[in-house]
């Protein structure tokens, strides 16, 4: 049975980092969907997805990111993707996702692309 892990933690600049591990497929995509939904429900629209430990992503897994991107961007936030293994990046790349999503080599790079939160 494939395993999938998703954990959310607070990053700097008011970001929420969702760390993925294992296999993200049709069976586990809803777990991630719920986690992103909760994050947005908490009022956080600065989302970084850390792919460091993700071994595999299927078409259904990729679809999850499309569900929320418009909503997050219209609230002046973003979903930035980071630290993909080459094989996982290839899947995103073939679909043309780099045109639509910002993808960074590390989580730190992705955090740095969010502006400092203003207090105003």
């Amino acid at each position: 049975m494939s395993t999938f892990i998703a954990n959310a933690s607070h990053g700097s600049r008011g970001t929420r980092v969702i760390s993925l591990g294992g296999y993200l497929d049709a069976h586990t995509a809803s777990d991630l969907e719920q986690m992103i939904e909760r994050t947005i429900g908490d009022g956080c629209v600065r989302i970084i997805v850390d792919f460091s430990d993700l071994e595999y992503i299927s078409s259904a897994g990729l679809g999850v990111f499309m569900v929320f991107i418009e909503q997050v961007r219209s609230a002046s936030g973003d979903i930035k993707l980071a630290a993909m293994k080459p094989k996982v990046f290839t899947v995103f790349d073939l679909l043309g996702f780099p045109v639509l999503f910002e993808i960074y080599p590390t989580v730190e790079d992705a955090v740095g692309r969010f502006p400092e939160p203003s207090e105003a």
Partner: peptide, 19 residues
Amino acid sequence: LRPAGLAIGIAPPKVFDQV
């Protein structure tokens, strides 16, 4: 052969056609 092109349904026509 891998000509550039986005998956159908992920981008509006303007972006899709451009790529």
